[in-house]
Design a protein around this nucleic acid. Structure first.
Length: 399
DNA sequence: TCTGGGGTCCTAGGACCC
DNA sequence: TCTGGGGTCCTAGGACCC
């Protein structure tokens, strides 16, 4: 007996997320074109999008496109809080949730019929839960694969639900423009257009080898697979982050003193290392990112011998990379400075209860031996010896 | 459409190792 | 002795995503 697989992958995507939060919190903004800035348009309400405003647009261009728009300064704490509330509903809806960004996720709703109903019923319930409990509009796409579910939600926006039934998949997919394929942005679309391919159906009709020639190996293969509706990726809880970074736009290009640049660098390193420690991650490679007045970019990186989340070694590394990049920076106007730490590792720690009254070195040696025994040859990059005074931990010795 | 801040993955060359 | 085949890691850049 052949049972046609039912659509069980759900892609949930909040509509114009930042702008919707602003409209929710300020009734005067409802029904009006809202642009969240400043500088660039981080989000535009659907009323503003109707005038051609798009996220990523410069503020001046957005104002030209929609002179009546209300400009609002971004409130990231409010968005983080709203996102947490929405993800709590996702987690209640299905045990398998894969976060894609602050405002979208995949949910696998297989095997939930007896508990929560059919996939379509679950999707409807999810939309109304988010609307009632968080006060935000959300669009849901439901299909057999992640790719199709995401395409479906994009088509159903705003505030919609679209189900792609298994016998209608190619009919739905093939007329779409190539940009609908995952991984096809401006550059790849231009290459495909140059090859005479403008729709997904046309991409599906050419051999894989041609796509590989035009777009490279990985991209070509993926395009071929997706255009034939082959997407075997499962929904799975988010894999760990691979980098943590921070960047700062400097405004108009002009000469900057080394002290000025160093001050920016110190701020960036401080932000990044704080976040690393909070996430209990440490990293080995420091990447310096720069951007110039003509919007060209460059990166320079250096890998340390050991992974760390401490401010001092990361700052020292960042400084040496910046120093090495100075000749490049001095010849072109710098407009952005950023750093990222990659090659992240888990910062595993264990805590031991030790008797008092022994030699401090012996205590530390015992702790180190214990860590070695548990984690094998794992390098010990940092130790904190703490005492306990009426239940409160007191650091006694670091490193 | 002239630009913010946060990420991901892929490619390619070079150094180095056995 | 100047050379095969396999691999890893590092660095830099490109494209893409929200």
């Amino acid at each position: 007996v052949f049972v046609s697989p039912q659509p069980t992958v759900l892609h949930a995507d909040l509509d114009a997320f930042y702008a919707s939060v602003e409209q929710r919190d300020d009734p005067a903004l409802r029904g009006r074109p809202v642009i969240v800035g400043p500088g660039v348009c981080l989000a535009a309400s659907y009323e503003a999008k109707a005038y051609g405003v798009r996220s990523g647009m410069g503020a001046a261009a957005a104002r030209r496109a929609c002179p009546d728009a209300v400009f609002v300064r971004a409130r990231f704490e409010a968005y983080t809080e709203a996102s947490k509330a929405v993800f709590a509903i996702f987690e209640e809806t299905s045990p398998v949730v894969e976060a894609l960004s602050i405002d979208e996720a995949f949910l696998d709703v297989r095997g939930l019929e007896h508990i929560r109903g059919t996939p379509v019923a679950i999707a409807r319930q999810l939309r109304s839960d988010v609307r009632e409990r968080v006060g935000l509009p959300i669009t849901v796409g439901l299909a057999r694969t992640k790719f199709l579910a995401k395409v479906a939600s994009a088509c159903a926006k705003p505030d919609g639900l679209l189900v792609v039934m298994p016998d209608r998949e190619l009919e739905f997919l093939h007329p779409l423009p190539v940009q609908a394929l995952w991984g096809v942005g401006g550059k790849t679309a231009a290459k495909l257009h140059a090859a005479g391919l403008t729709t997904v159906g046309e991409v599906a009709r050419v051999p894989e080898t041609l796509l590989v020639e035009v777009c490279g190996r990985a991209a070509g293969r993926q395009l071929h697979a997706l255009s034939h509706n082959r997407d075997p990726r499962r929904v799975r809880p988010r894999v760990r982050r691979r980098s943590i970074g921070s960047q700062h736009a400097l405004g108009r290009p002009r000469r900057r003193s080394p002290e000025e640049l160093d001050a920016v660098l110190v701020g960036l390193v401080d932000r990044v290392t704080r976040r690393m420690r909070k996430a209990r991650r440490c990293g080995r490679t420091v990447v310096l990112r720069v951007r110039f007045g003509d919007y060209t970019r460059a990166t320079r990186s250096r890998t340390m011998v050991r992974a760390t989340a401490q401010t001092e070694p990361i700052l020292a590394t960042a400084r040496s990379v910046l120093a090495a990049a100075m000749p490049l920076i001095e010849t072109r106007g710098l407009t952005l400075l950023g750093i990222a730490v990659t090659n992240l590792e888990d910062n595993v720690g264990i805590q031991l209860a030790l008797p008092l009254g022994r030699e401090r070195e012996a205590v530390v040696d015992a702790a180190v031996d214990d860590v070695r025994a548990r984690f094998g040859t794992a390098a010990i990059t940092r130790g904190v010896l703490v005492g306990r005074d009426r239940g409160i931990e007191v650091p006694l010795l670091e490193d």
